[in-house]
Design a protein around this nucleic acid. Structure first.
Lengths: 137, 137
DNA sequence: ATATTATATCATCATATGCTAATACGATGA
DNA sequence: TCATCGTATTAGCATATGATGATATAATAT
């Protein structure tokens, strides 16, 4: 039983956003935003472990978000398309207005612990919780 | 111990993309792209279960991606900002060029089963797997 | 007030996800 | 060829995630 075209493209689109939906991968993409980087450089800039970076890079590459090029014994990665950066930029712009809302998006995931302090630290205005949800979990 | 501003904003941004990174939520957002909808209407259009829609709507609302308004005994939802639609549009545009790559992004997730047929159904060209990864899992 | 309809919440469960440690692979220089 | 450095892969584990069924709550109509 085939899925409809619509559902398939949703799945593919979801996977794209999923690729963008992880802090480690975002930090890698941020590093690449200022230009091509080798794996080692990314490891340094992100302070993630080397295998972890490598795994995420594989994912990002398979996702078409970055491309790789062998440079001697190094492998250099870069953003595959300007639209990747545009997505990040657009998200930032949106977040500037709804950041707190996103922080509250804990229905399907209480975060490991981006504690309230850390959020305050980003200077996001904390208004009284309108919905009253997820405060007591 | 506070996270750095950088890391916090990454976490928030990741959560935004995570909100967009699920087929069910995307189908809800697609429905809302053509205008405000009540929960019941969304349930019909997406053929998701009512509790499931409700859960995802809560998430989307907390994420700041949609807003809700009580209309009599109905609750009407709509996209909270034009940029939500823009993100979706930008993603579509990007996917037009890298769709297959995204399909191959299975490092961290073999999907429940967007079987190969369903992908072929979207007329995405399937080339021989360059990396040879994840074919045997 | 009570029944009915629309929506939200909860407990539970199977699966997806991301991390680490260990190790393999690949390119280069001695 | 061998040693070494840079990168990729794997197994295993703890946790996050999303679906469902049962049920609670909210709003309206009778």
């Amino acid at each position: 039983m085939l899925l409809t075209i619509d559902q398939s493209s949703l799945a593919v689109k979801a996977r794209l956003f999923r690729g963008l939906g992880d802090p480690s991968r975002l930090s890698i993409l941020e590093a690449l935003r200022s230009g091509p980087r080798t794996v080692g450089e990314i490891v340094k800039e992100t302070s993630l472990s080397q295998p972890n970076v490598s795994n995420h890079l594989s994912c990002l590459r398979d996702c078409g978000l970055v491309t790789a090029e062998q440079k001697g014994r190094y492998v250099q990665y870069q953003l595959s398309d300007d639209r990747v950066g545009e997505l990040l930029k657009l998200a930032e712009s949106l977040l500037a207005d709804v950041a707190r809302g996103v922080y509250e998006c804990t229905r399907y995931a209480l975060p490991t612990h981006p504690s309230k302090e850390s959020v305050a630290n980003v200077a996001i205005e904390i208004r009284p919780n309108p919905g009253g949800r997820n405060e007591t979990n």
